[in-house]
Computed example of a mutant assay.
Amino acid sequence: MSFQRPYVLLSFAASLDGYIDDATDRRLLLSNDEDFDRVDEVRATCDAILVGATTVRRDNPRLLVRSADRRAARVADGLTESPIKVAVSSSGDLDPAAAFFTAGAVGKVVYCVGDGVGLAKSRLGSVADVVDAGDPLDLELVLDDLYERGVRRLMVEGGGTMHTQFLAAGLVDEIHAVIAPFFVGDPAAPRFVNEGVFPHGPNNRMVLAETRQIGDVVLLRYELGRAAGGSITSG
């Protein structure tokens, strides 16, 4: 069945060996100030930013537009200062005091799976809209609901599970990949994607639309188009 969905931009930074973090409790800085500003510029062009629940717990992100000038420009265009914040959770076990919920006067939406919906509504109902996203997770339902909320451009910022699910389902239009000039080399650390079957394999290559050096990192921008959905494998 056809459905309407936003344009989906997936953004991440990774080490040269494909890790988006290390296995410590401290956040691994994979990029630099110049690239952080580029990401802020991209955020300011979007209607919503989506992350998985693990990213909310692990990184405690604010997910706001940092630049005062960009926030002012959004307001002048009749928008909120920052995009809507979106989280996806299977358990619903999120802290309502996390920066995701407390920072910024913008809408927050949490999509939950199965039994997690009840817990999420009891814990988060006062700080976010909680939506049943099916069991298993139905990303088409998520995107269709976001479209109904006026989201036309969605930025997916992690983590690896979200990257895997969106890419394997063929629901990504563009990738911004920033590659850091070092290795992590720890199998316990999270990678850009997990095991899966993806539409863009060796016989369906993505289009490299841009390469840009940004200090000591490099941005690779890929265009994927509207690919047919793949599948996710689990161990």
Rank of each mutant, 00 (worst) to 15 (best):
V56T: 04
L29N: 11
Y147A: 11
R70S: 05
P83Q: 10
Y7Q: 13
L79R: 15
V42N: 11
D25Q: 07
Y19I: 02
L139M: 07
D21P: 09
L9G: 09
S126M: 06
V110A: 05
E148P: 00
F100H: 02
A14T: 09
L79P: 01
A105W: 02
D95S: 06
V65H: 01
G114D: 00
R38I: 08
A13G: 05
D144K: 07
A98D: 14
V8N: 04
G118D: 14
V88C: 06
A98I: 01
A103R: 11
A128D: 07
R66M: 01
T45F: 04
D69C: 04
S11C: 10
D17C: 10
E148Q: 14
P96G: 04
E34S: 13
R71Q: 13
I20L: 00
A13K: 04
D59E: 07
A120V: 02
T80P: 08
L119I: 08
V113K: 12
F100T: 01
N60P: 10
C112I: 01
V113S: 08
R62D: 15
Y147D: 15
D144H: 13
R58I: 08
L30N: 03
D25T: 09
L124N: 06
D33R: 15
V117G: 02
E81R: 09
A128T: 07
D129K: 12
A99Q: 05
Y7E: 13
F12Y: 14
K121W: 01
P136Y: 02
T80L: 14
A128R: 01
T45Q: 14
V110K: 02
L9T: 13
V130K: 08
A120I: 00
L50F: 07
D144F: 00
F101L: 10
I84P: 11
T55N: 06
L143R: 06
S15K: 08
A128Q: 06
L63Q: 03
D77S: 11
A72P: 03
R70G: 03
K85N: 08
V42P: 05
A87V: 09
I84Y: 08
A133E: 06
D93N: 15
R70L: 13
L119Y: 00
S11E: 10
R74L: 04
D37L: 13
G114K: 00
C46A: 09
K121G: 01
A68K: 12
K121E: 13
L94K: 03
V113Y: 01
G116R: 00
S82E: 04
L9Q: 11
P96Y: 07
